[in-house]
Amino acid sequence: MTGKTALITGAGRANSIAHATALALADDGWDIAFTTWTAYEARVPLGSDPERGATELDAELRRRGAGSLRIEADLADPATPDRVLAEAEAELGPVSALVLSHAESVDSSIADTTVESFDRHFAVNVRAAWLLIRAFAAQAPADGGRIVALTSDHVVHNLPYGASKGALDRIVEAASGELAERGITANLINPGPIDTGWMDASTREFLTARQPTGRLGTPEDTARLIRFLASEDAAWVTGQLIHSEGGFRR
């Protein structure tokens, strides 16, 4: 083990931002605990084998010299966040970086969103984030820590997802103020449209046409920014919502 540990949620798929982030942080000397939730990946398939992705991530982290711990975690269960932090700390030591990259994301609109779906989005995307931050802060090292969360402003015809991400923004903003005296920073990244398996060909073409760069963002683009925010160089950056979108035009 390297002596500093990051917990990254939602790292089941090989094409995910969390997967890319885990590898980037490992290259900077972090040990990595990461969560997966197989039942969600089966319910919302996004073009890759989550079991294979998690197994390959664990193997690659170890190959790069990092400690690695996979935790299967149903974040809709309010008991899960405390368990996840406890397992990560017991196996790899105190967690000093928390990257919130998990999400419940099922498209629906004002008229057809069900109460069950709405509640599930808020349980996973909002309540679990609050509980993970609380559990993280309770065990964070005395010399501080880092919280980075992924957000989105996509809400039209994506109501429960977008609304829950708006609530997440406020929780992270609160953390940036309430935890600052302990040297813990808290920031949000809006990565814009990243093809992590959810785009079909027409969606990819439509969104690419709105990128001044002429290309869509990649998981690695976002991972590089997370890598910075988790570093000592970012100690003076907190309470920010950073639009890292390549100039995306809505």
Rank of each mutant, 00 (worst) to 15 (best):
G10N: 00
R13D: 13
S16C: 10
I17K: 03
A20W: 01
A20I: 04
A22K: 00
D27Q: 13
T36G: 02
T36I: 12
L46G: 09
L46F: 13
L57S: 01
L61M: 13
R62D: 13
R62Q: 15
A66G: 04
I71C: 03
A73T: 13
D74E: 10
A79W: 01
R83S: 11
L85D: 01
G93W: 13
P94D: 07
L100A: 06
L100R: 00
S101P: 14
S105W: 04
V106N: 08
A111K: 05
T113W: 04
D119P: 07
N125C: 03
A129Y: 05
A129R: 06
P141E: 09
G144Q: 13
G145T: 05
G145I: 01
A149W: 02
A149Y: 00
S152E: 01
V155I: 14
H157R: 12
S164E: 11
A174R: 08
A175V: 11
G177N: 13
G177W: 08
G177H: 12
L179P: 08
A180M: 08
T185L: 07
N187Q: 13
G192S: 12
D195T: 03
G214N: 05
L216T: 03
L216I: 05
D221W: 06
D221M: 09
E232I: 01
T238D: 04
H243K: 11
E245N: 12
E245K: 03
G246R: 01
G247N: 07
R249H: 13
